[in-house]
Amino acid sequence: MNISINGEQIDTSAETLTTLLEQNGYANATIATAVNSTFVSQGERENHLLKEGDQIEVLAPMQGG
């Protein structure tokens, strides 16, 4: 299915958010996720099923004022 991660379109076979993150280099990273602008906590990722057209945001600590 086609989804986007941080604005980039990808074709993935991952069914859950956890699998998607592992397949795209985020395993063990300190990150937070949102799907279609709604926060999905770390504990919810395993059971969060992806669907066509989902927009995934993967955020990490960054400099800020």
């Binding site: 795209n24 300190t30 955020l59």
Partner: peptide, 22 residues
């Protein structure tokens, strides 16, 4: 220290080093 969140790349993972330093 004030900090923020931004998009993280799955390849360079810039945010991880920053967070370790903070």
């Amino acid at each position: 220290a004030t900090v923020s969140l931004r998009r993280e790349s799955g390849t360079d993972k810039a945010g991880q080093d920053f967070w370790a330093m903070i």
